[in-house]
Amino acid sequence: MTLIQLEYIIAVDTYKSFVLAAEKSFVTQPTLSMQIQKLEKSLGVRIFDRSKQPIVATDIGAVIINQARSVLKERDKIKELISETQDELGGEIKIGVIPTLAPYLLPKILGSFMEKYPKMKLQIWESTTTKVISELKLGLLDCGILSTPLNDGELIETPLFYESFVAYISENSSLNKSKTVSATELLNEKLWLLNEGHCMRNQVLNICQKKRALNPEQTLEYNTGSVETLKRMVDMNSGVTILPELSILDFNEDELEHVRYFISPEPVREISLVTTQNFLKKKAISFLTKEILEAVPEKFKSSKRKELMSID
């Protein structure tokens, strides 16, 4: 049994394909297949059920693969121990961020982070919460920046800040003269929503539970995967949408005329840095956390916000 063989079975389990696993491992498929067959022969068990597509692990194979992940993680800790002793932060960190947060948070932190740590390579993907969680557990990501709580015992959530939701209303709306709004007042408005699969869609529906129960056919509009598109839908087609507060920080005066905060208790989402239980790259992730906390406005970090209407 070799560490390379363990890497190969993890790759096949991750990508559910010998061809793709070989490509991601930078070897030919025959080489990868031969090494896995050698491992299976030495262990006396079948790790994969090759009769199924996509490829799946056998029952004992799944146990072996989980142990292989643990073995390789312990190996990588040796590299991290060395990295921790070095003055200049280097290496690579892979981050998953939800799309309703990434465009508004990342530009505020990436420039300064890369300037401070020029040897650190960042790889960032915008993905849904479900995909980020899956890739964290598979070891494809080092950390995620997500809306929490996730209620997953395999993950560690480190709260970073608390972000309010605001209403963005059309100039033709009956609420245009109001300084604040409530979920009840949105009952007669056309509401533009994100597509299925976005956690913010569910959070908005939770804010408007009364609306959903009373008249869902007339009050909900299914539309897009982009927060920016939601805003444009309101501008061009009337109605209302609900936006995360970070997205309005760079609004001009005309755009802010369309923004309304909710009456107390304001709906708030918790944003956390999420890792697996035995995560690596602790030093790099701690510096990333510090950079985020320095970038967001102080009011977002207030513990009082946590006491408002949490939306999960």
Rank of each mutant, 00 (worst) to 15 (best):
I4V: 15
I9K: 01
I10S: 01
I10P: 01
A11D: 08
V12L: 06
T14I: 10
S17Y: 00
F18Q: 12
L20N: 08
A22I: 05
V27L: 08
Q29A: 10
Q29V: 07
S33R: 13
S33N: 11
Q35L: 13
Q37R: 15
E40T: 07
K41H: 12
G44I: 04
I47L: 03
F48S: 02
A57N: 05
G61T: 00
A62F: 05
I65M: 07
N66G: 14
S70R: 07
V71T: 10
E74A: 14
R75W: 02
I82W: 09
E84R: 08
E84C: 04
Q86M: 14
Q86F: 10
L89S: 03
I93C: 01
I93P: 00
G96A: 09
V97W: 00
I98G: 05
L101K: 03
L101V: 09
A102H: 12
P103L: 05
Y104A: 08
K108N: 12
F113G: 04
E115W: 04
K116N: 15
P118W: 07
K121Y: 09
I124M: 06
E126C: 07
S127N: 13
E135A: 06
K137G: 05
K137R: 11
L140M: 14
L141H: 03
D142V: 00
I145G: 06
T148A: 10
P149H: 12
G153Y: 10
E154S: 13
L155Q: 02
P159R: 02
L160Y: 05
L160N: 07
S164R: 11
S173I: 04
K179S: 15
V181W: 01
S182E: 00
A183K: 10
E185A: 12
E189W: 05
L191W: 02
L193R: 05
N195Y: 03
M200D: 15
I207R: 02
I207W: 01
C208E: 00
G225K: 10
G225S: 15
K231W: 06
R232F: 11
V234P: 04
D235Q: 14
M236P: 00
V240P: 03
I242T: 04
P244Q: 11
S247P: 02
N252I: 08
E255L: 08
L256N: 12
E257D: 13
V259M: 13
F262S: 09
F262Y: 08
I263W: 03
E266A: 14
P267I: 05
L273K: 02
T276G: 04
F279D: 09
K283F: 01
K283A: 02
A284S: 08
F287R: 12
K290H: 14
A295F: 03
P297G: 05
E298G: 14
K304A: 15
R305T: 08
R305Q: 11
K306A: 15
E307F: 08
L308D: 08
